[in-house]
Structures are given as C-alpha cells and as structure tokens.
Simulated assay, not measured.
Amino acid sequence: MEHKLSLERIVMPIASLLLVFAIWQAAVIVFAFPPYILPRPLDILYNMVTRFHIFWNAALVTFWQVIAGFVAGSIAGVALALVMSLAPRLERTAMPVVVLINCVPPMAFIPLALIWFGLGPNSKIAMAALAVVFPVLYNCLAGLKRVDEGSVNLLRSFGANPLTVLWKLRLPAALPLLVTGLRIGMTRSTIAVIVTEMVGAYSGLGQIIYRSTALLEYLDVWSAVFAASIGSLVLYALLTALDSRLVWWK
C-alpha cells in the first residue's frame, strides 16, 4: 500500500506536467502563436539540450547561491525563534521590528544589497537569507508556542529545566510548522536570487533572462525559466522527503 502511494506521488505530478506541455504544444499549433509570444515547448527543450552547458553552468551558479542563502536564513530564523521562545520579553520587544522589516518586500532591498555586497554571490546570498528568515521564524515560533501547557507543567514537575522542555517537547511539536516555513522559504529564496541576478550579476539564470530579454532571444528566456523551475522542483522534492523523515508521525 505504501509503495502504491509513493508511486502515485511520483507518477501523478509527472503526468500532470506532460498534460500541461501537450496542451501548450497543441495550443501554439492550433492558434498559431508567434514564437516571441509563446514558443512551442519542444523548441524550448531542444534549445536547452543544444545549449545545455550554458544553462547548466548558470543553474549551478544560481542554485548554490539559493542553497547558501536558504541555509543561512533558516539557521537565523530558527535561532531567533528559539531565543524568543525562551525570552518572552525579548519577543515582545523585537517582534514589532521584525514585522516592520517584513512589511517591506524583500526585493526593495536589492539595490542596497548590491551596494553593500557588490555584484558577486554575496549580495544574492544575503537577499536569499533575508527572504527565508521571516517565514522560518514565524512558523517555528508558532510551532514552539502550540505545545499544551499541561504537558509543559508535567515535564517541569519531573525537574525539567526550560532547555529540556524546549528540546524534548517544544521542538518536536514545532517540526510540522517549521518544515512548512522551510518550504515557503525555499521558494522565496529562489525568487530572491533570480531577481537579484536580473538587477546585477556576472552570471546565473537571472542574468541570462535579463540579457536574453534585452536581445529578444525568447528561447533563451524560456529555457532559463524552465531551468529555474526544474531546479526549484528538485529542491522542493528534497524538502518533501525531509518532511516525511522528520515528521514521520503524520
């Protein structure tokens, strides 16, 4: 039964993607869309294959920055959530500042990131970390707080200190919401890196999209978008696998 369910989780998404591509291909042929408006998926895939090394190298640049920023932002978000859960006064003091910063779209900080960290990878990693830290912080903190107080009092009655309660009770209870925050953060991290690359970078998928748009090379634009989508799906699948491992009781 479990094998059947895991097979369905793999087959159904692939079948859905193939159906979308088939409808797309048929619509372009039937309605005769100009290639610069909507190219055929087969043409995009052919362009990706024939120029594989270009998109592969660009994807490597983009996604190592995505992963680095995601890891940095996740660590910062979890650390802040843990500290705030142990120090409620600090949470009441710091949370208005956190909310104020989060009210500003992360993309608004791109010019500052480029000025402070330059056109290299540091600015992309910083923007990815900024995009990740808030959803991870909010979800982790909410998970840490949703523990039943009766369970907390029971552990304390056996002599557990706040750190023991945090490790034995609050963290396991927070895992489902934490993984949800990580999934959201991964998506935001990818968007932040690609948009930052479009504004200023030496390489990466975002830079290919920017240059190809300026040169009207529509197949390269779509190929870079496809490469970014494939990379995001792979990272999302890894987080889903992590979810099933960590939150096995679901």
Score class of each variant (00 low, 15 high):
72 A>F: 11
97 V>C: 08
107 M>C: 11
106 P>G: 11
114 L>T: 02
104 V>A: 07
110 I>G: 01
89 R>M: 12
70 F>M: 03
75 I>P: 08
81 A>F: 06
85 S>W: 11
63 F>V: 07
87 A>D: 14
100 L>I: 10
76 A>C: 15
77 G>N: 02
110 I>E: 00
108 A>L: 08
94 A>D: 06
76 A>R: 11
69 G>T: 08
107 M>T: 13
72 A>L: 13
79 A>Q: 09
112 L>K: 01
61 V>D: 05
86 L>P: 05
96 P>W: 03
113 A>V: 04
64 W>T: 14
74 S>P: 01
107 M>F: 14
88 P>V: 09
89 R>L: 14
96 P>R: 01
73 G>C: 01
67 I>H: 04
88 P>M: 10
111 P>N: 06
81 A>E: 06
89 R>A: 14
76 A>E: 10
74 S>R: 02
71 V>P: 06
105 P>Q: 03
101 I>F: 15
108 A>F: 03
90 L>W: 09
109 F>T: 00
62 T>E: 05
108 A>R: 01
69 G>W: 04
92 R>S: 14
115 I>S: 05
106 P>M: 12
102 N>L: 07
76 A>T: 15
78 V>Y: 02
106 P>W: 11
67 I>L: 12
69 G>H: 07
71 V>W: 08
84 M>C: 14
110 I>T: 05
106 P>L: 09
74 S>Q: 02
64 W>P: 08
